[in-house]
Design a protein around this nucleic acid. Structure first.
Lengths: 320, 320
DNA sequence: ATAAATATGTCAACCGGTTGACATATTTAT
DNA sequence: ATAAATATGTCAACCGGTTGACATATTTAT
């Protein structure tokens, strides 16, 4: 037996197609008894209206595509969680796309999302040079990521966070502060943290060096800098690795080495609460991203492209 | 200007609708020149075929609904990551549903997924008594969760894991081993870990007690058990809390107190590698779940309902 | 030279809903 | 008593594709 359709419900309830449609969409006049009959018929038949058919006609799917590298990460996992929650609250569903940092996957996902007629996209994937972002007129919001000139970005104050982290280590007495960051070539806003570190150090006339996360960068950093006494890691996972390596080398944190991370996601704070970190307002970032997207979806013309930058916060732990 | 449709492509390429459709679906005979013309027209118009319209006709969406409490958790974040990857590899998209442990949300999501005509559902949410699972004839797989008699379950060997964890603590010399687990009433397979703990202790004629994660259970556990020297926590997050509280109380881990967790998700192992834990094969669980789902989706009749139980592994850290 | 294969077209029905126009009957308000 | 509001129906077009039947023209194989 096939899935029941609107016509089956109408027959069962002894009313016309139009009447069932009216009940479903709450349009026009419907009598109480009729409404109940229709609902009863839907229940008896285990009927669920076909959203695909509806979407086709109304040209709206109430689906938002969400493209990020992975959910398997404290920061993205939390961000995606909140994105989904805010979307759900507004009646939108989320199509999850893990790009895994691969440009080909991101491109394929973007095409898929367009084909699937999503109402909008929230993206924070890694790759540049994807022209679809340029060409697309679809509502899009970037989270912590520049995608195209006309696409608004939600991020937290990466530069300020970088300054806070660096100054914090200096305030705590560090003389040789090193920084670890992703590859410069990725052109992410995380580079602002690096700029902030380097400019702050320069300004204080202290030596500085940034290690990029390639190869065995942590060992190399320790080997090349015997006097190291402070590390600003551009995310908490890296900070955890640094602490582990330091312990392995017999250095005590925070006595001999102070370490500050970045992100301050819920799961990190549960598992590693002693880590000093710069906390990004992840939930608020998700909220703003959804808000900006809905502005674009609902405003017919002229959605104001205003980038949003949210404040970060230093969480003092026991590693600095 | 509206989105281009098939007819626009046909006009642009100077061919018929049918020909464009043939190119799109690779059906029947198509000449090389025509194919190229059509592809050129699609590119020029920035055309993406409307999957919604296609889905309606072929009665297949290539969408899988994925219902779990949250992505904001090392275990689920990783599981969902792999689920998405395996689905993507097979040409299926993932609709993400975070039930947040709320029955009403789970129910609403299930209805939504049916309406959206998803081809199948993979669920590991918390609530029982949702009759939709019983009634539904849709392909469904439960991960670590009983949903209905006819729905296959993928899980890891929770009982064995519980035995391994308990015996490990005893082997390491613990005399007073306590267990922390979620509420029994949730009826999750994690209860098997509890059973394993209790039966193992009973068999060794050692005193045992399980604390459920309600209220200030950790403080209570320590207060009520001054001789406590071992804790088997039913997940790693709880284990992290236990270690923290122990340190706060001046107990040294593992000298005075040995702690073993459960799950061994990637992120936990990165942030807290020193934790001894029972590692679930999360990626393999995702793989099996997708495999079982595809079996149901593709087999017309008589999909064999075989539950899958995968082996767990003890990861020796420094907390035991 | 002829049949088969290849290439493309026209046409109409269909997927499962929504919507507007219009008709008709009944109930409610003044 | 009469107009307006309420309740329901019929009908047809539409959303943007797919598909099968059939026609016709050209190319390829024997």
């Amino acid at each position: 037996m096939d899935k029941p359709k609107l016509a089956d419900v109408a027959e069962r309830a002894g009313v016309s197609l139009t009447t069932v449609s009216r009940v479903l969409n709450n349009r026009g006049y419907i009598g109480d008894k009729t409404r109940k009959k229709v609902h009863a018929a839907m229940k008896e038949l285990n009927y669920y209206p076909n959203e695909i058919a509806r979407s086709l006609f109304i040209k709206k799917t109430y689906i938002v595509g969400v493209i990020f590298p992975t959910t398997n990460n404290p920061f993205y996992g939390q961000l995606i969680y909140h994105l989904e929650n805010f979307c759900e609250a507004l009646g939108y569903k989320v199509l999850l796309c893990n790009s895994g940092g691969r440009e080909d996957k991101e491109r394929a996902y973007l095409e898929m999302l367009q084909s699937h007629q999503v109402d909008g996209i929230i993206a924070g994937a890694h790759n540049r040079g994807i022209d679809i972002y340029q060409r697309s007129k679809m509502p899009i919001v970037g989270v912590d990521r520049y995608l195209a000139d006309h696409i608004p970005i939600v991020s937290s104050d990466n530069y300020r966070g970088g300054v806070m982290a660096t100054e914090h280590l200096i305030d705590r007495g560090c003389k040789h502060v090193l920084h670890i960051n992703g590859q410069l070539s990725l052109e992410t806003p995380a580079n602002l943290r690096r700029n902030a570190y380097e400019e702050t150090m320069k300004q204080k006339k202290m030596p500085y060096q940034t290690y990029e996360t390639v190869g065995d960068y942590i060992s190399r950093m320790f080997d090349e800098n015997p006097k190291i006494d402070g590390v600003f890691a551009s995310d908490d996972l890296i900070a955890a690795r640094v602490i582990r390596e330091a312990n392995k080398r017999g250095m005590r944190v925070p006595e001999n080495l102070k370490v500050i991370g970045y992100d301050g996601a819920d799961m990190t704070r549960m598992l590693l609460p002693e880590l000093t970190t710069i906390k990004q307002p992840i939930k608020e970032m998700a909220e703003e991203a959804v808000r900006l997207l809905m502005n674009q979806i609902n405003e017919v013309e002229n959605p104001t492209v205003a980038n949003i930058t949210l404040p970060v916060q230093l969480i003092q732990g026991k590693t600095t």
